[in-house]
């Protein structure tokens, strides 16, 4: 019997890091987008709104890239 602990360990590590990173990114994106209307209504600085929005789109973009990579993994 030859258990490939290294492979199991890397599956463990990679899964953990990737899941947490992806969910974190996505949540940041959602929070960034949802915050956007509030300061605008108060007439706050437009710069921070724009920044939050841009950041959110960057987050979503990264998540989309991860999904694309996932599809690539399935196809390859």
């Amino acid at each position: 019997m030859n258990i490939d602990w290294a492979a199991l360990g890397s599956v463990f590590g990679v899964s953990l890091v990737v899941t947490v990173a992806l969910v974190g990114l996505f949540t940041l994106g959602i929070v960034g987008l949802s915050k956007q209307p509030e300061p605008a209504a108060q007439g706050g600085s437009g710069g921070s709104v724009l920044l939050a929005r841009a950041g959110a789109y960057v987050c979503f973009g990264l998540c989309a890239a991860a999904v694309t990579y996932g599809i690539y993994l399935i196809v390859a």
């Binding site: 599956v11 990679v14 899941t19 969910v23 996505f26 949540t27």
Partner: peptide, 23 residues
């Protein structure tokens, strides 16, 4: 919804990672 998202993302990641890292 946030939990569902976390659960499904975790499952997808584990499945893809495991089948491509040899375990």
């Amino acid at each position: 919804p946030p939990q569902g998202f976390a659960a499904q993302t975790s499952a997808a990641t584990v499945i893809l990672a495991s089948s491509h890292l040899g375990f």
